[in-house]
Design a protein around this nucleic acid. Sequence first.
DNA 1: CCACTTTGGCAACAGTGTTGCTAAAGTGCA
DNA 2: TGCACTTTAGCAACACTGTTGCCAAAGTGG
Lengths: 391, 391
Amino acid sequence: MTPVFPGAFPHALSGAANLPALRGHNAALVLDLLRAAGERGASRAELAEGTGLTPQAVSKITARLRAAGLVTEAGRRPSTGGKPRTVWRLVRDARYAVGLHLDRDELTAVLADLPGTPVAVHRAPFDLGAPPERALGEAVEAVRALLAPAASGGVPRAGVLGVGVACPGPLEHRTGVLRRVTGFPGWDGFPLRDALAERLAMSVALDKDTNAAALGLALRGADGSDGRRGGAGAGAASFAYLHLGTGLGAGLVLGGTLYRGARTGAGEFGHQVVRLDGPACHCGDRGCLEALCLAAAARGDTAEAARVLGVGAANLAGLLDIDRVVLGGRAVLADPEPYRAGVEAVLAARAARTDGRAVPVSVAPGGARLVADGAAHLVLAPLFGRLEPVR
Amino acid sequence: MTPVFPGAFPHALSGAANLPALRGHNAALVLDLLRAAGERGASRAELAEGTGLTPQAVSKITARLRAAGLVTEAGRRPSTGGKPRTVWRLVRDARYAVGLHLDRDELTAVLADLPGTPVAVHRAPFDLGAPPERALGEAVEAVRALLAPAASGGVPRAGVLGVGVACPGPLEHRTGVLRRVTGFPGWDGFPLRDALAERLAMSVALDKDTNAAALGLALRGADGSDGRRGGAGAGAASFAYLHLGTGLGAGLVLGGTLYRGARTGAGEFGHQVVRLDGPACHCGDRGCLEALCLAAAARGDTAEAARVLGVGAANLAGLLDIDRVVLGGRAVLADPEPYRAGVEAVLAARAARTDGRAVPVSVAPGGARLVADGAAHLVLAPLFGRLEPVR
DNA sequence: CCACTTTGGCAACAGTGTTGCTAAAGTGCA
DNA sequence: TGCACTTTAGCAACACTGTTGCCAAAGTGG
């Protein structure tokens, strides 16, 4: 839709690779380092150090990226005895992406700049239970309102790469088609991505709300560390985002990238059975984590809700050897600390038993806008080689 | 240790990539296709189709691989109206790898050829509880016996790439150090990989038994389909290998590659809690899957053991959206069908509830040698771009 | 003022996959 | 049997990659 730069969007090269793909791959590496560097920027030498490329290669790549308008020189570092290093930074307003969060009763649209920082927000009531065509119209209107000069402050339409849409699952991110959205079966089979793309004349990416949130955390830094990948093969950060709202779901980031499974089915966290033959769940099974957790929360027993959630988190942490657990969702955000502490206690007890490292638990920053912010990253992340682009 | 070919061992290019890495990456792609093609082989045109490279690039790559002795021309396909296609095949005896399975009471060493087929096997009693130095000596002796001309039929020592070692966890594959192997704490901190490498003067890779088994299944085809990756970004096969023996563990293959987590801790499957506040487990927790499953099996209630195992498998399948579950381990292999059917029934019930696809369940082929065969793939897989090489 | 250090660009280079063309090796019909 | 046609595969030139060697620019410190 909008040109980015030649050879853009190469995910970690897994298929056949030719020279354009190689170029795009290395360019994405440099961009990702600059994104992580933020306001501080990075010099050529630092980029060379961080990527493993030679300084000369970095020079060529930064020159190309500058020609594309994506990066710019921004001052110099103090000299350390020789010519001072030139600092490079991402050009914040070089490109934009829209993040659209369609929730059960509310719609949030954000306009994010190249590093992913929101520069405009639009909120509106929304009814996911309305007929799809009507809901679609409201989503389209929300994006148009967001991009109107009055709201976005004159962002050139051509600079907007596309729209990332996040909504409750199940759905298929590859095809952009919704499945039986829990509680709203009317959406089953609706090609939301293509319908939005046609109405907006923009490229659109669709994913689950939990996945969008996890992706946003991976790139903006759930732990403040800006989610940089580790060195070559050192194994990048892995974490699980657990979302406790109307239901209970998870978004998984494994080895620095969002793990969605082949059918976008990964992250079905709430319907793991933790009490065999326990109380019935609305899903038809018995003893689901979600049922136990929500029931405890409903009767005001936050400690028990947190403990049960912690057991599920421990099951997950053991299976996937993750580095961190991040909590979010309305129920958690309403009273975060008991949940955080309760989950962390269960994980710490497990670590003590197994002689292992305790998995730290934190509460997701960003509050109610977390998912919308993350949805914008569905469009931005491929630029930085952080997400397999959907074609 | 043994030269393979210039630029060998490039995993899916995730770090900075230069031309040698690019060459190695594409060469690995071609080798992987030829491995999957097996006896049938593949023509240049088929390789070009499968990799996405141009026919001319494939010509250059096959020429290089032939010079390295890894591939050879093997006949022609019938003409379809023009010049008949030349078929290429892997040279089976171009390279070898040793797979060593150190189990609690037995040791298995296999010599595998380039495609991973065992050509020699050596079995011996083994005591994992013996002092590490003595056990190490026995392992060294086993490898030497396997490679002796009498056993291996004159395989040139120079053609052996290295030794893949699989043993019960926990351990760290990156450093090659054992942790408190369940039941045998004497190993804690023992640098098995480096010790073996020094004694044998060969390169050694270490991993958990369940991971080795899963890797072997991924490459040899748990489903007979030879484990080929899907097309570009199509999402390769994901499955879980569940091993029910003395304990209960899992090996995970996600998107075509072995997932081990940063600390080789992934696959802790048996100590997920499925009965909150249930019976005590030896690990110190309550209601662990392993405790319930083993208890049911011990009292002869295979149906219940299978049902409980199925619940754990369903929890896992939901969380990771996998394509298949493979069962193995002594307890399962002793009487496979009830386990297979029982687990599959639970997964089918779950699929029916969620309107999803039922996850098929199969029993691992290869029997008692599964882990040893897989261990050889710890050495072979990097050649085919299927495993991040440990450095 | 000058020696020294460090940055970063220019030009030549080795090596990648790609493109355009041609030769080789079959099939199938007149 | 001859000939048109199809398909495979190699050669040579090419565009482009990151790398190397060299040198100018721009600082520091005595």
